[in-house]
Design a protein around this nucleic acid. Structure first.
Length: 450
DNA sequence: TCTGGGGTCCTAGGACCC
DNA sequence: TCTGGGGTCCTAGGACCC
């Protein structure tokens, strides 16, 4: 028998992080906006009660919401990332079998526990995270990940559960009833397309799917859905993700603060993405064999020329050198950019990643002599350590400047006065950003004693 | 004026080989 | 009028996740 698995998920994670360090945000409707202050990506319970949907564009939020006290925050990933690490540290202290799943969720294997002891352990984890980080989590537990997800959703929605729910698949009556009440579209792994097709087959609830014919499901859909079906039945099919080899591709892209046709600005944005991508590459110890650049216009803008294109550039040898990657990007921009078109978003995708140490020195790589490689490694190590010590973007490539994330100041006006003259169009908007309370000494919370 | 960013897995189909 | 069969590898695109 496989050990039960729990999903520990932070409630309204981004808005909760904001509240930990700013008590004035308690009890008010609060939303966190996506990059560029584009649309709503997190909501407090009060904001949900105002009817603000996930993904609402900022400019579609009704005035009435502000009259009721709605507060906006720009996303502050430095803060959220650090809070996420803290939650993880608390979980890891309790059990070694923790697998981070997203910035606000982790899987935890609870071996050797069952019945009341299992439920007690879930409550203990929940209380501990709250006490040590100030964040509230919900814990869902079951024999498979799909059931743990479903239990988690239940725990989050029903205060009577006290944030913890354990289910056992359709064998037990109470779990069976929960599956019957859950729409198939709310099951983890089932999106809009698949659920529409399932409805046509009269499969409407999670229980309907759990008791459907696996062979038929596999034939009409795929092995993915068959696994979901079996997981709903209590069979463990979806394993821990083995990310020991790191990510298989690294994407860095952003929308521009304002659309622009200016070649230099577009170039600067791509160079910034290339250097950020190369940093991520070095952090996970990989080398990229190819890089793809992408450019696109704003699909929502009416009456303007639309254009999108991308190009894959093979690198002469697998590398993690910022300068080599930037050089490739610089050379190829004109291959995809159309003169006069105002672009809205650019991106750099590092592909065909190989392990830095496990690489084979084939005939091509041999072309790059040892001196050159050692110099590059030294330079990149220096670059990274300077940036670690003096803050992100302390040292950057040529004129690409900062990638356009927030600086110490948080208003557009202050930003402009910081940059001597006109601010580049491609820089992000980030008008409502809070401090990076836990990662920057200058922004640490101050307590004044009367 | 203003609509995010970063991933994974699976499948189908074409190219190519014997 | 007739035109093998089976296997692998690669890529593009679909679907889903947070």
């Amino acid at each position: 028998m496989k050990a039960p698995i729990a999903l520990v998920d932070c409630n309204n994670f981004y808005t909760s992080c904001e509240r930990v360090f700013d008590p004035q945000l308690q009890g008010v409707p609060l939303v966190v906006l996506s990059n560029n202050d584009g649309c709503v990506i997190a909501r407090s319970e009060e904001a949900k009660a105002l009817g603000i949907a996930m993904g609402t564009p900022l400019h579609h939020i009704p005035r009435s919401a502000y009259r009721q006290g709605l507060v906006l925050k720009s996303s502050n990933y430095e803060l959220y990332g650090d809070m996420s690490r803290r939650v993880l540290a608390v979980l890891r202290e309790s059990t070694p079998l923790v697998e981070p799943y997203s910035i606000d969720e982790s899987w935890v294997e609870l071996a050797g526990l069952g019945g009341e002891r299992l439920e007690a352990e879930c409550h203990r984890l929940r209380d501990k995270v709250k006490r040590w980080t100030g964040l509230q989590v919900s814990v869902g537990c079951g024999p498979s990940r799909t059931l743990a997800k479903l239990a988690n959703r239940h725990a989050k929605r029903h205060p009577a559960t006290n944030g913890v729910s354990v289910i056992n698949g359709p064998v037990r009556a109470d779990s069976r009833a929960l599956l019957a009440r859950t729409l198939v579209s709310d099951v983890w792994g089932i999106g809009g397309r698949v659920s529409a097709r399932l409805q046509e087959m009269d499969i409407r609830s999670a229980l309907d799917l759990a008791t459907a014919d696996p062979t038929l499901i596999r034939r009409r859909f795929s092995v993915v859905l068959e696994r979901t079906l079996r997981e709903l039945g209590g069979l463990h099919c979806i394993d821990m993700i083995d990310d020991s080899e790191g990510k298989k591709m690294i994407m860095t892209s952003r929308s521009f603060g304002k659309m622009t046709a200016d070649r230099d600005q577009i170039m600067a944005s791509l160079m910034a993405h290339a250097s950020r991508g190369a940093e991520k590459l070095r952090r996970q110890g990989s080398l990229a064999s190819a890089v793809m650049i992408t450019l696109r216009t704003n699909k929502f803008a009416e009456g303007v020329a639309q254009h999108r294109d991308s190009k894959v550039i093979a690198l002469p040898w697998p590398t993690d050198d910022t300068f080599e990657i930037v050089r490739a990007v610089r050379r190829e921009l004109d291959a995809i950019r159309q003169e006069g078109v105002r672009y809205h978003k650019s991106g750099v995708l590092l592909m065909d990643l190989v392990d830095r140490h496990g690489r084979q020195l084939d005939a091509f790589q041999a072309k790059r002599d040892d001196n050159q490689r050692q110099r590059s490694e030294k330079l990149m190590t220096t670059l990274d350590s300077l940036n670690r010590r003096f803050g992100k973007d302390a040292v950057t490539v040529g004129y690409c400047q900062r990638i356009g994330l927030r600086r110490n100041t948080s208003t557009d006006k202050e930003r402009r006065s910081n940059t001597r003259g006109e601010e580049p169009d491609w820089w992000l908007r980030s008008r409502y950003c809070s401090n990076r309370w836990t990662t920057r000494l200058e922004e640490i919370p101050k307590v004044t004693l009367e």
